[in-house]
Design a protein around this nucleic acid. Structure first.
Lengths: 228, 228
DNA sequence: GAAAATAGAGCGAGCGCTCGAATTATTTTA
DNA sequence: TAAAATAATTCGAGCGCTCGCTCTATTTTC
């Protein structure tokens, strides 16, 4: 599996998700025109993530967000009802994308090794395409209100569970030799997270997404194939 | 090496560092009485880290810090000249401790495997004792001013370099079979960082610092001993 | 020309920081 | 040793400013 192939299959665009959000009556979007609304909402979310990743969500003023999006305070408040809701929209949008892709990429008929390889590739490739959101979600999580924080923890543990289940299944089938599947899943996850958290480091060293994925795979495989 | 042994050897207390800082004329501490000054400064640093780790340094108001430390705005400003300087003091204090311990724990006469094992143990044990500072330093780094940010990056790369040098040396001696030492060092580091960044997860699962250290060691050893 | 969208001045609250008054501790004087 | 004088420390109201958010006047759209 190559990144370029994955990118092609990854058709679910942000615009589709923004369209879904605008249609959803649970939020406070006052704009009627869908064509304009979807485009603006997309800009707002992307710009908010960009500024937040530079200086933090809390330190980003809404005036700054407005001027970078090319709209006024009043204009912005046609899309959100508070700064807290903006955060919810960002999280909601990212999670929708994430869950859709994770659903698609399961395959129970593969061998344990292929399953593990595929899961690692999928996670790294996905976090490459959604790097700003993954970074945002990780770094801002501790400032979320309780409800949003619980959703974040849930998503974190869910991802980890995917790995621990593959490991556990592989151990039962005799394909893997490893101690604690949960600790191992956690170790794998920390390597995957490094890819979207330390982007500056890997850019500086000219390490491509495929270089990184291959290295993680070989690292993990050495452990699960050996006896410890 | 057990954590309890390490803890005993780790005699350098925060109070000594605070004493050094107060003696240093580069800062703006106006308090004359050393006995009171050292104690208060220690409280200020520890409380500031605690509040910051909960809600972020930027979101922590100095009024809040004052009331938790039991002093007034004026009182606080006898120790710092600005909120930015408080951040510098926190970073400075942590880095002094970190570097002192890292200097102590080198040992060039060991075998490659022992060196690697010792380096991993030292890092995990150290980050256990200084967890709040490590967490603070990692999560707030992107908000630092350029100068402070460069110091952070330098420290990050220095730690990584310790591992990549051990790995490179081991490969040359024929003890290790591995591909890229830098990528491997980076993978090890991401596992070490997980220990102080995801404390809630490991606490919830009742995983001790020694459990974690052992697992990382076995994970890394499987890779460096195998052929990839 | 009605409805939808936008603009941006204005509001109260809370921020980092200051500074003179109040309080406490120490030294000097008689 | 008690009183007076001086120094050191603590205090918190107040300053200028920016924040999230509101609301009405204006412009744009169809």
């Amino acid at each position: 599996m190559k990144f370029s192939d994955f990118k092609k299959e990854f058709k679910m665009s942000m615009e589709d998700i923004c369209y879904e959000i605008i249609q959803d009556d649970n939020n406070s979007i006052k704009v009627k025109n869908e064509r304009v609304g979807v485009k603006k909402l997309k800009t707002i979310i992307e710009t908010a993530i960009t500024i937040s990743n530079r200086k933090g969500f809390h330190a980003m003023s809404l005036r700054e967000l407005c001027s970078e999006c090319g709209l006024s305070m009043g204009g912005l408040y046609g899309y959100i009802s508070s700064k807290d809701e903006l955060l919810e929209v960002i999280q909601d949008q990212g999670r929708r994308l994430l869950l859709k892709v994770m659903d698609t990429y399961g395959n129970e008929k593969e061998s344990s090794i292929d399953q593990l390889t595929r899961a690692i590739y999928t996670h790294i490739y996905l976090s490459e395409l959604m790097q700003p959101w993954f970074f945002f979600s990780y770094m801002e999580a501790r400032f979320f209100i309780r409800e949003e924080q619980e959703k974040s923890i849930e998503t974190e543990l869910l991802t980890e569970q995917i790995f621990s289940e593959i490991l556990e299944m592989g151990r039962l089938k005799g394909d893997f030799k490893l101690g604690d599947p949960v600790l191992t899943a956690s170790a794998i996850k920390s390597m995957l997270q490094d890819w979207y958290l330390k982007r500056w480091k890997y850019n500086r060293r000219n390490i491509s997404v495929d270089d990184y994925a291959k290295h993680v795979i070989s690292f993990v495989m050495a452990f699960v194939k050996g006896d410890c």
